[in-house]
Simulated assay, not measured.
Amino acid sequence: MSTETFEFQVEARQLLQLMIHSVYSNKDVFLRELVSNASDALDKLRLAKLRDDTLDADVSDLHIELEADREARTLTVRDNGIGMSYDEVGELIGTIANSGTAQFLKELKEAQDAAGAEGLIGQFGVGFYSGFMVADEVTLVTRKAGEKQGTRWSSRGEGTYTLERVDDAPQGTSVVLHLKPADPDNQLHDYTSVWKIKEIV
């Protein structure tokens, strides 16, 4: 399958830079945001199946998995929920115009403290980007329920992202974070640690 490279919109680039050079004292928020997104995906699939019982999707064992690989320094958040189509990935993640990013950036500048800033992440639906607080690269693989082909999205947060169609994607979405080195002085914990993951989730 061919891989296409796209540029983030200006607002998206601003947001990525904000996350990469994060001033947030509590970077743990990223994992709560990704788990919350995965939970929403499960709920959306349940609802879709109720509305259309001909939908070719298994809803008998909906769940979220967290998988840490200490050697590879990756953390994966995986769900078997509704998933996204190729076009939806481009729209929802590539442009983020739909998630109120401009308003988010405006309110973030006005937030007087780190706690107030952290509260804004979930409010504006930009939780996915919080992964760049702790990761040098983020890879997302997704397949929309009822569709045969999946999509892989990847970015190092440097202004561009790649999209490609894949044939072997399971239903749902997995987000793989290629973690930065742990740096306790900057509140960057070892997110391959099982106890740290349990503490957050």
Rank of each mutant, 00 (worst) to 15 (best):
M1G: 15
E7C: 02
E7G: 06
E11T: 11
R13K: 15
Q14E: 13
L16G: 01
Q17N: 15
H21S: 14
H21R: 15
S22H: 02
S22C: 09
S22I: 01
Y24L: 13
S25Q: 13
K27P: 02
K27S: 07
V29W: 04
R32G: 14
E33D: 06
S36R: 15
S36Q: 15
N37W: 01
N37C: 03
A38Q: 07
S39I: 02
D40M: 06
L42N: 12
D43W: 08
D43S: 13
K44V: 11
L45H: 04
K49L: 06
K49R: 15
D52F: 09
D52M: 04
D53E: 14
D56H: 12
D58L: 09
V59C: 12
D61N: 15
I64Y: 01
L66S: 10
L66C: 04
A68T: 09
A68C: 07
A68R: 09
R73A: 07
T76V: 15
N80S: 10
E88N: 05
E88T: 11
V89D: 05
G90T: 01
G90K: 13
E91T: 13
L92N: 09
L92E: 11
I93M: 12
I93P: 00
I93S: 00
I96K: 00
I96Y: 02
A97G: 11
A97N: 14
S99P: 00
A102Q: 14
A102T: 13
Q103S: 08
L108D: 05
K109W: 03
E110I: 11
E110S: 14
E110R: 14
A111G: 07
A115T: 11
G116I: 04
G119A: 09
Q123Y: 12
Q123G: 07
F124P: 03
G125R: 09
V126R: 06
V126E: 03
F132C: 00
D136L: 03
V138L: 10
V138F: 00
T139H: 09
L140K: 01
L140E: 02
V141Q: 14
T142F: 06
R143G: 11
R143M: 13
A145Q: 10
A145C: 07
G146E: 09
K148W: 12
S154Y: 02
S154C: 11
S155N: 04
S155D: 08
S155F: 05
R156T: 07
G159Q: 10
T160K: 08
T160Q: 06
Y161Q: 06
Y161S: 03
T162R: 08
A169N: 10
Q171V: 15
Q171S: 09
S174N: 12
V175C: 09
H178F: 08
H178M: 01
K180G: 00
P181I: 03
A182D: 01
D183V: 06
N186I: 01
N186E: 05
Q187D: 14
L188E: 06
H189W: 08
D190I: 00
D190M: 02
K196D: 00
K196A: 04
I200D: 00
